[in-house]
Nucleic acid binder design. Structure first.
Lengths: 236, 236
DNA sequence: GCATTTAATGAATGATACTCATTAAATTGG
DNA sequence: CCAATTTAATGAGTATCATTCATTAAATGC
């Protein structure tokens, strides 16, 4: 069908590209933050950014792409300092604790953004191509580096399935923050981090820190045997 | 505006209520299973059920309600036998293993249904009013009963935060099945269940599983006494 | 067998993501 | 500095759906 178009108004003014993108993303972030993904219409975002709907599509492929870019920007801003902050901690437990606490604290600070990320970004088909994905990989890689280092130092058990340890930690974190993310509960980042580290470590840590309880038990048993024999000999 | 309606065809035939609901739900399940929530239109479901769109709304409030009822039915069918199957296992470890394995196996058997449940049902506002929610509560309650029993028997550490143990187990399970659910990886339910139980238990279990650290301590104390006596006698 | 209730119909409605012909502002190049 | 060309912005469409409702006939009650 032929498309008969009416008159179109002039392109009133032309703001610089970067400024325009920034204002669209700012408007989108505010809207998405406050109302979630589905409830927000492109018309609202356009109105808030003082732009017409069509203009958004010049810079973003579609609504989901817009959200993805918004979340990416937020995530990059946030993760920027993590690596440096981590430097301040030494020891497997302290470093693991920091990673877990930092994660929990982020959820606590920005539940709406995290929810968008969990519900909309992370389970979308193109997720693996987003920068959020690679940032997340970096982040969990860092966690597993700490675990590997712990193993090397003898603080953690050998032969740990790294993938499973990652699933254990971040799965636990996610479930712990579940209710809070949905406005149905609270949690304390510090307290939760303590508890999670303890629970995970007692699984991951070698039974007796720095040692092998198995062989120790063997030595102790044999030593005791000898002492008892000596004692009996003395008495006998 | 007044609504001027054209002619409407007769209500050709009237199938029994239950049969009609069943055919709608069956059609919806097939469609949702194969195409996810958003991609499926009510028109397609109606066509497959040999019903007109409006008819669906006589039995279901809206598209999401239809999905919820479909998932509820599936979930009820599935969980029906769990309690009985669990009876076959005794011992904390074996029973926990069964619960985790059963969960993993379900995901493995019906990834599409699980995905719908995770993405669409579990994070919807009305989730707490669904029967899926109460069934899930029952299910995790059962898991925590096993943990509590383990504590009572002295097999698991005292003072465990039950909520955290639940988050640890089910969070880990969910993350482990993440890729598989999205068609991006595999996992072995049995193997994963073994690994998860081990990792979780070594955290939750008393330091030496089943072993008698107590009697070892007793022997050590008495041996020390003897050493000291020997030492004194030798010196004296 | 007539009157009333209830189920089924399918055509409207409204919301909304996304497109595109039109127009004017920038930019280029002579 | 001005004409030709490129590019951005516009807003009126279009397409797709979930959802509604006046209409009609089948059941049911009397």
């Amino acid at each position: 069908m032929p498309r008969i178009q009416g008159k179109s108004k002039p392109a009133s003014q032309r703001r610089p590209r970067e400024e325009r993108i920034a204002s669209i993303m700012a408007a989108a972030e505010e809207e998405f933050r406050g109302n979630g993904f589905e409830k927000v219409s492109m018309a609202r975002i356009a109105a808030r950014a003082q732009v017409v709907e069509g203009t958004i599509y010049r810079f973003f492929d579609n609504k989901h792409d817009l959200l993805t870019k918004v979340i990416e920007a937020w995530y990059e801003r946030m993760l920027a300092d993590y690596a440096r902050e981590l430097e301040g901690f030494s020891g497997t437990r302290a470093r693991l604790h920091f990673m877990i606490w930092r994660h929990l604290q982020t959820v606590w600070d920005s539940p709406q953004m995290c929810r968008l990320m969990f519900d909309q970004i992370r389970s979308s088909p193109g997720y693996r191509d987003t920068s959020v994905f690679s940032l997340n990989r970096m982040y969990t890689r860092r966690t597993l580096d700490i675990v590997a280092e712990g193993v090397a130092r003898g603080e953690l058990r050998e032969g740990l399935d790294m993938g499973l340890v990652r699933d254990l930690i971040y799965g636990c974190v996610e479930h712990r923050t579940w209710a809070y993310l949905r406005g149905e509960g609270e949690f304390d980042p510090k307290q939760s981090a303590d508890a999670i580290v303890s629970l995970v470590l007692c699984g991951a840590a070698a039974e007796v820190p720095g040692g092998d309880l198995g062989s120790l038990t063997d030595r102790l048993a044999s030593a005791t045997d000898q002492i008892e024999r000596l004692s009996r000999e003395k008495a006998g």
